[in-house]
Design a protein around this nucleic acid. Structure first.
Lengths: 137, 137
DNA sequence: TTACATTTGCATCATTGTTGCAATTAAAAC
DNA sequence: GTTTTAATTGCAACAATGATGCAAATGTAA
């Protein structure tokens, strides 16, 4: 789906910053940090505009954040857009990339009495297939 | 186990700040934020000292951080100290507390070929039993 | 009690994110 | 195609979190 269509679907004004962010994130096969997105973005936007665009896109569940160790913040397209189920995220300790594991659904957890869950976040840390290959060669 | 014993076990100097932090965290039945810990702590420490103490305790896996939405940072005793398995964390959307679900072990996830996992973080968001009770009354 | 290495507090700086406000822009109405 | 209106942008300022260098203070071992 095109950025413009996504913005229309959520009744958001199609500003170049929002379109650009969606395009860059859509094109990537991994979650991207703020700086990675800015590097690939055409045009120069104020930091404030950036953050506000992210916030808006997040609030409408067009993108979502994945945070690793309270340090690394990465963004990816949200389930509601990709039509996939709630999935686990994978962080590679070697190359520091974050990927949405669309084929690894979040499992159901049995909570103690009285607790009800709304949402579950799963972050798996380890070595990705790319880095593993490089080690073996 | 006493704070002093824990510090000794890891060959760390027993400074009052470190002891205090461990004591406060041990006494709590939920994960605490920096400010919550500082409030309960006897003595006034510089912010830098605080952060360095946390860092040291984290590096030695005496405590661990749980981060919610890249915003709320909470600390709790680590598995290596409590002798429990890797567990899920629960964040209450109502009262904003974080608890270690020691009885909810992290499940095994089947990753795509080539991926190997080292550690899995699970954060379940929802309503805790306390808040649920208050709603029903 | 002394000696040495570690830790503390202070000043300073970096990063990430927010808010208020005037200027600009997108989208709808004319 | 213009005008109108509401949303968005950029700027300045601010807040929170965290790191670093360095001299002073403290813990530990001798």
């Amino acid at each position: 789906m095109k950025a413009v269509d996504i913005l229309n679907r959520y009744n958001l004004k199609r500003t170049s910053c929002r379109e650009g962010i969606i395009d860059v994130i859509t094109a990537a096969n991994q979650a991207l940090s703020e700086n990675e997105i800015r590097e690939q973005l055409v045009g120069n936007y104020d930091r404030t505009t950036f953050y506000r665009s992210f916030k808006t896109l997040e609030e409408h569940k067009i993108i979502h954040k994945i945070i690793v160790d309270n340090q690394l913040v990465k963004y990816a397209l949200d389930n509601t857009v990709t039509q996939k189920d709630e999935h686990a995220h994978f962080y590679c300790n070697e190359c520091n990339t974050v990927k949405c594991m669309n084929d690894v659904p979040v499992q159901k957890y049995q909570l103690p009495d009285g607790y009800s869950d709304v949402e579950t976040e799963v972050l798996i840390k380890g070595i990705c297939s790319n880095c593993k290959n490089q080690k073996n060669n």
